[in-house]
Amino acid sequence: MKRIFLIGYMGAGKTTLGKAFSKIKGLEFIDLDWYIESRFHKTIPQLFSERGEDGFRELEKRMLHEVADFEDVVISTGGGTPCHFDNMDYMNKQGETVLLEAKPEVLFNRLKISKNQRPLLAHKSDEDLMNAIKEGMTSRAVFYSKAMFRFPSDELESKEQIADSVQKLSELLNI
């Protein structure tokens, strides 16, 4: 039975790498945000707006506990998931946790494209976005540092880079 949790800041490549890795390894892939959206038939921004951050984080915790019971699965968490309640300790007990680490400049380029779909980043200028990334990474470091493994995720821009990263992640996790 395998249970792998991918954590990291928004845009670190959790979904990109998680989908590719799970496909190659024959594991189920769950993006926690997508799972929440499908369960509640609402987008994350809608849920965030309706419930506020605290209400959303409570819902996210419940859904994390639900998917953490699945077996042979790769779970891509939201960037803030490890930072609330006892989520990080819980994931470490339930399976293996991998922190995907990307440089702020890489995150900026990825997030700039999709910032309007992300409630915490919508309507930020480029300068504010870069500052938010740096501040967010700093404030989340204490939680992210509890991950069992660290994995560089700057190079996930091409099929070749993704395939190479899948191979390296397989070696890191000995799978």
Rank of each mutant, 00 (worst) to 15 (best):
T16Q: 01
A20L: 04
I44A: 00
L111Q: 09
S153Q: 12
F48G: 06
L111C: 13
V98C: 12
L32Q: 01
I4V: 05
F21D: 08
N87E: 14
T15E: 09
D72H: 11
V98A: 11
S165G: 03
E157Q: 12
M63V: 12
L47I: 13
D72G: 07
F56G: 02
L172S: 13
T16W: 03
L173P: 07
H65P: 00
K61T: 15
F143E: 06
R62M: 09
M1P: 08
M148P: 03
R150V: 08
F151L: 15
N116A: 07
L107P: 11
Y144G: 01
A122Y: 03
E71C: 08
L32R: 01
M10Q: 07
K146R: 07
E28M: 06
G79W: 01
M130H: 05
R39P: 04
H123W: 12
Q161R: 13
M91D: 07
K23W: 07
G18W: 12
H41P: 03
K2T: 08
I162G: 00
E171I: 11
S22A: 14
E37I: 10
Q46F: 15
G78E: 00
V106I: 10
V73Q: 04
F40R: 12
L172V: 15
S22T: 04
D69A: 06
L17Q: 06
S153H: 11
Y90P: 00
E66C: 09
G8N: 09
L32Y: 00
T97S: 12
F48Q: 06
M88K: 14
Y144E: 02
L99Y: 12
F151R: 14
E53D: 10
G52F: 07
Q46M: 15
R118L: 04
Y90K: 00
N116T: 07
F143N: 07
I44R: 00
S158F: 13
L121A: 09
K19N: 13
I75C: 10
D33K: 02
A20W: 01
K19D: 05
Y9R: 01
E66I: 08
A122K: 14
E53V: 11
K103R: 15
S114L: 15
I44M: 02
N87H: 11
S76Q: 12
F143Q: 04
F143D: 07
M88T: 10
G11D: 07
L169W: 05
K93T: 01
V67D: 08
V166P: 10
M1W: 14
T138K: 09
H41V: 10
E105P: 03
V98F: 11
V67P: 08
T16R: 02
F151P: 12
T77K: 06
M130C: 02
R118T: 05
A12D: 04
A68N: 12
A102W: 04
